[in-house]
Design a protein around this nucleic acid. Structure first.
Lengths: 154, 154
DNA sequence: TTTGAAAAATTGCGTGA
DNA sequence: TCACGCAATTTTTCAAA
């Protein structure tokens, strides 16, 4: 099953934590940290990737530095499931970083990063134009204190 | 200034997009994609890291695969700024992936990933125990359709 | 920014615990 | 099965132009 937890030992979890922090470290350095040889580390990383525990290795980009200075979360209320599906057509809008359906009253939660307030206004317009969208509530982020991936320890 | 946009040309943005998708590609391959030699790509990446445009290179971990099957967003209402500051002491709680202060009525928005519903219950308890916390609203994620970093194009 | 070369890291394989 | 050492290959990185 795709959503079944993988079998992981403590060394795997430690390795995941290290890679989630900084994946540019060499296998030799990682091996030193977890008392393993470079090829052994390599084998584990290969397995973790094959099993989908590591979904990708990516560069974390600073939103402000690329000109997206405004971060916001938008809660969208939809009339029904059909309208929710219509919302999902916005998946490739570049301003949208995250898009989740959430439990409760037919809601979609968006994490969006835009240039300025006008960018948010424009995006909200796009959303509200969709048939079956009842309304939106926006939460504009003032400061971000934590922003990281899943913690591999249980 | 730390929050000033960096000077980026179209090649930088294209490079950022490629690295945000998959940073394991070799400089030679990246160079082919943007019509540059490997050392030229290397120089650009070095500059983008030095300038903080690339904040880090990390492994993206699958929450479910490491045993965190429940994703939720929690909106916390606080009485005042002092209570908000008290909330920030939870920054190193492993379940908390994101923590933002948001505009409006003294709110903090959390993205949390827990093992099961009981994990959320426990976390909510911790939050509500904090002096000055008025209440919480939780949005449990059913499906995630988009989850990526900032788009480097403007 | 490129070409070319040195240094370093990745990765395959054979061996043994 | 899992980890190690060795070695071939690839990649990174440093020059000089």
């Amino acid at each position: 099953m795709r959503h079944q937890p993988a079998k992981l030992d403590e060394i795997d979890r430690k390795l995941l934590a290290l890679l989630a922090e900084d994946s540019t470290q060499s296998y030799a350095d990682l091996g030193e940290a977890i008392h393993l040889s470079a090829p052994a580390v390599h084998d584990r990383v290969k397995r973790l990737k094959r099993d989908g525990v590591i979904r990708a290795t990516v560069a974390k980009i600073d939103g402000c530095k690329v000109g997206r200075t405004l971060l916001a979360f938008v809660l969208v209320n939809t009339k029904n499931l059909v309208s929710t599906k219509r919302l999902l057509t916005l998946a490739n809008v570049p301003e949208i970083e995250e898009m989740h359906t959430v439990a409760g009253d037919s809601c979609v939660l968006l994490k969006v990063r835009v240039r300025e307030t006008e960018g948010l206004e424009e995006l909200l317009g796009k959303i509200q134009d969709i048939e079956g969208v009842d309304g939106t509530r926006s939460y504009i982020v003032m400061s971000t204190f934590v922003e990281r991936g899943p913690d591999p320890y249980l």
